[in-house]
């Protein structure tokens, strides 16, 4: 469904008078994503995970390579065609507060994609918004509240409701659970799994949280310095990868129980 082939990207490094050499952030990235699959994209900060996410969302034209979604190349189509494609690809970002307009009510936020793509009567739209709110574990009466009245976990649920409003084929989840506390993280992960089972959507789950990626993904890609260094279909395959970047991520996990503490007493 999603086909990323040989995508490279570099950012211009500024320079007032003469151009400085561009900084490469992605090099030769290729992968495919089947319908209904959840692909985990792992890596430490600054490896280009979010840039790749933006390229897949059609927000950033890559310097080289092709991104096609359902057989259509994002960046070869005109604006009108892109508008139709955008309906099928939605996003949820890390910072739930900056992802919404603080002056809009929850109902307006969730209803915005419906307004853009579907001509619904006011009554029908209200009904759909209420339905979506209940689907993500909130109440229909929450539609009149503004973002400031919600906690981070609740607001992330609103972002998810907005993302699923048009029943997209793919949702890019860019660190969608990273800013939440543990209880909320687990609840949101459960919600995401459930929604995927109900609608058969695909997820691109971008994260640095290895346990979360293992919990939800069918396949994991590990990125390091702009390249994919490991592809794993199971937890065991990921754990046995010899690449230092993968091992660094695995070694950075914290213990689940105080008896499993990492021993640092010998360090000076």
């Amino acid at each position: 469904m999603l086909d990323v082939s040989q995508v490279s990207h570099s950012y211009a490094a500024g320079g007032r008078l003469w151009r400085k050499p561009a900084i490469p952030v992605l090099q030769d990235i290729s992968f495919t994503l089947e319908p209904g699959m959840c692909l985990g994209l792992l890596g430490v900060s600054g490896t280009g995970k979010s840039t790749l996410g933006k390229i897949i969302l059609g927000l950033q034209r890559p310097t080289a390579g092709r991104v096609s979604f359902a057989g259509q190349d994002w960046y070869a189509r005109d604006r009108r065609a892109r508008h139709h494609m955008r309906r099928e690809v939605q996003a949820v970002f890390q910072d739930c507060y900056s992802a919404v307009n603080p002056l809009m009510s929850a109902g307006q936020i969730i209803g915005e994609p419906l307004r853009n793509y579907e001509r619904l009567s006011a009554l029908e739209q209200k009904r759909r918004v209420a339905e979506l709110l209940e689907q993500v574990g909130l109440q229909a009466s929450d539609a009149d509240k503004r973002p400031a009245a919600f906690s981070g976990g609740q607001l992330q649920r609103i972002n998810i409701a907005r993302a699923i409003a048009l029943r997209p084929k793919l949702i890019v989840l860019d660190e969608a659970i990273s800013s939440l506390d543990m209880v909320n993280q687990t609840q949101i992960l459960t919600l995401l799994s459930q929604l995927r089972a109900d609608y058969g959507m695909s997820y691109l789950f971008i994260t640095h949280h290895i346990q979360a990626a293992l919990t939800i993904s069918d396949r994991m890609l590990v990125m390091d310095k702009g390249q994919i260094v490991c592809t794993a279909d199971s937890a065991a395959a990921l754990m046995s990868s010899p690449h230092p970047a993968v091992q660094q991520l695995i070694a950075a996990r914290l213990p689940e129980h105080p008896s499993q503490r990492l021993d640092w007493s010998s360090e000076t």
Partner: peptide
């Protein structure tokens, strides 16, 4: 609410030692 996906302890310590010895990136 802890995510208990995969956490065998012995394997982790082995891998840590391996990682220290490991040098240079091999492509998986």
């Amino acid at each position: 609410s802890r995510m208990t996906a995969y956490h065998p302890l012995e394997q982790e310590q082995e891998q840590e030692q391996e990682q220290e010895q490991e040098q240079g990136g091999r492509r998986d």
